[in-house]
Design a protein around this nucleic acid. Structure first.
Lengths: 322, 322
DNA sequence: GCTCACATGGACAACGTTGTCACCCTTCCT
DNA sequence: AGGAAGGGTGACAACGTTGTCCATGTGAGC
């Protein structure tokens, strides 16, 4: 900028004014400055600007895995809103690791992001307190923060969706319905188990429940164990997209009723089509980002807790008889 | 930092030394400083640090669409390498729009990212010249930059893969093989058309070629048109993952040989399984990032041009007879 | 001719860090 | 005792921008 100023024969501040479109610059002078900028290929140093102004126009996004279709769609929705507000997106994958999650958030905060959107991995977010108090807003998506941290959240109706799925299978005559879910420490998995259990009532049988990381081999082993029971399951409720796919592979050929939580690409092309309880990651990401920007524009009301509805999409697998 | 300094009764510089783990600080003093840092909840302001040091430890990633499985997997690979080098990732989706692409790159450069990884949308990247000359390295992935810009690239063997796919269908007895590809302005689509055409030789018939944006309705219309020909195609070669899925939906039930470019989740679970020419987005992203960091650590050798191999994965659809 | 307002331009400090250099105080050697 | 060596510490400038305040020039209104 100094170079531009001397090239155009004006003071530093005048260049700054031109660059920022501030009023009070003679059109002729402004033109000379612009010409010099063009000629020198100058572009404003945002780091210095940030330092001076205090706002980075950057939002930090922490998700579980950028490569997971659910989260990448969610992330894309966040990006769109962020862009619309003239901000950039710093993103990172926590890999379901609380340590990594915390590290990411701390790094983002050290860079003074204007706000955070987090799909939490850990169960304790008290470390966020100083940042929140310092005025950096955060919105939690998909899962709530740990106790004692009261921020905006955007969740889906996990328990309700699981009830829907389970009732759907019950309505089609099933009495032995297995649940394959993710680790119980994951909030969504726990809520879905809860809804499943509530819908089953006295039909609940813990031998038909498996909750673990979606590793194909393990899920398959649990499934085999259940199928070897005296009264094996006649239907499956799978607790998330990845587990649904693993289960589909494990079932390979065997025709069994199945409802999965989370919709996924090609679910309609399989035979039978896969009936799912669908949430809407685009809405979730978009709403979370909107909430964040509302905070950034000064809203200091009490924390909002959005719970998005889910819906059953019938495609065949959930309508198979026992 | 100033507050920490006065709280600990030391000079600014001493705090800086402690924060950066520089040697030459008395253990007792360091302890006092750390205690003050803890008590005040201080965290270093990266913006100021960046301003002073000149390096942002940030990489900018421009891809076509964060929500597309191919690119999100690629992005994840970039993220992993970036993280391993202690850097953060700024990412943005170009939406296949050259204007947006340029805007993103300019914004990233204004923020002084240390380097860029770009899946280009446009055909002219001369606007990058000043940045490149200023020492900001860039690596292009999946598609090469426009003419006159000589930077590292990581591409896959598009023409070779298309030849493989086409020959595969030829070997299974097909003579009428249609090609459904993306817009010819997209480098990968053009190269794949080229390979397809080369493999077909005199069997090439331009009535069996459709190149357009992967909009289901349009692709379906083109497909219907081809099927209504006197000598309709007996096999399909689809030019990318999205088009493959669109075609699969359009074929709905009709049994026709098909080989797709790009592998995708669940391709193995469809009946018949979908034979594909697979590239490896994880390797592509990872290699691109490695290349970038090699540049960042001072390598000034001539631009490297990596071309990754592709492989045919047989799953059934490509082995159907005419 | 005077003041006053306005348009334009510039000097300077500040944002929070880090690199450079100089200082002080031991300790040890001669 | 005097000096050299070196560890520990601090003062200060600089990074590139922007906000504040002041200076100058110009024209209108009294």
């Amino acid at each position: 900028m100094k170079d531009v100023a001397s090239a155009a024969g004006v003071a530093l501040k005048t260049v700054s004014r031109v660059v920022n479109g501030e009023p009070g610059v003679h059109p002729g002078t402004a033109e000379r400055v612009r010409e010099a900028i063009e000629r020198l290929g100058y572009s404003r140093n945002e780091s210095a600007r940030v330092l001076r102004r205090g706002r980075t126009s950057t939002v930090g996004l922490v998700i579980e895995d950028l490569a997971d279709p659910f989260y990448s769609v969610l992330g894309r929705a966040v990006e769109d809103v962020t862009t619309a507000h003239g901000c950039l997106l710093l993103s990172g994958s926590s890999n379901e690791d609380p340590v990594r999650e915390r590290e990411l958030i701390r790094t983002f905060c050290a860079r003074r992001v204007d706000g955070l959107i987090v799909v939490p991995a850990g169960e304790d977010h008290s470390f966020l307190r100083p940042e929140l108090d310092a005025g950096t807003p955060a919105v939690f998506v998909d899962r709530p923060p740990g106790p004692g941290v009261d921020v905006d959240t955007v969740l889906c109706d996990n328990a309700g969706g699981a009830r829907l799925a389970t009732r759907h299978l019950l309505a089609h005559g099933h009495r032995r319905i297995a649940f394959l879910g993710d680790r119980p420490s994951i909030h969504t998995a726990a809520r879905r188990l809860h809804g499943y259990r509530a819908a089953l009532g006295r039909l609940f049988d813990e031998r038909l429940v498996s909750m673990r990381a979606p590793v194909p081999r393990d899920v398959r082993a649990d499934l085999d164990r259940m199928l070897a029971l005296d009264s094996p399951p006649t239907a499956l409720f799978t607790g998330n997209g990845r587990i649904t796919m693993t289960a589909l592979r494990a079932l390979e050929g065997r025709r069994m009723a199945l409802v999965g939580f989370d919709d996924f690409e090609l679910a309609d092309l399989l035979r039978p089509g896969v009936t799912v309880v669908a949430q809407d990651p685009t809405s979730m990401g978009g709403l979370a980002a909107e909430l964040l920007f509302r905070r950034l524009s000064g809203d200091t009301g009490p924390a909002e807790h959005l719970r998005l509805p889910v819906r059953v999409i019938r495609r065949g697998s959930g309508e198979l008889p026992p």
